[in-house]
Amino acid sequence: MSNKEWPLWEVFIRSKQGLSHKHAGSLRAADEEMAIENARDVYTRRSEGISIWVVESKHVVASDPSDADSLYEPANTKIYRHPTFYDVPDGIEHM
């Protein structure tokens, strides 16, 4: 039976209107329809969601954690991208 295992799906849930879908976990299902039904039963038993996305895990492309230093280093050196970098004179309240 083991080699006939159903594909793995990643589940994303929108908890309420106005918020984005967020990764909730994963599950096994024979097809996308069953994946949605299982996701409802496994991840929304207490009204945690109003919309579900399922994506077969094999379609997710992820960055390699060992590349983290080189991938994110450029952002670390550009502190002028944050508003706190700038001097605002006293007396200015909202900017």
Partner: peptide, 19 residues
Amino acid sequence: GHGLYLYSAVETLGADRED
């Protein structure tokens, strides 16, 4: 449901759920 969350967590470690 708790069993399923946990089997999913096991799978992230590269273990085979059915095994």
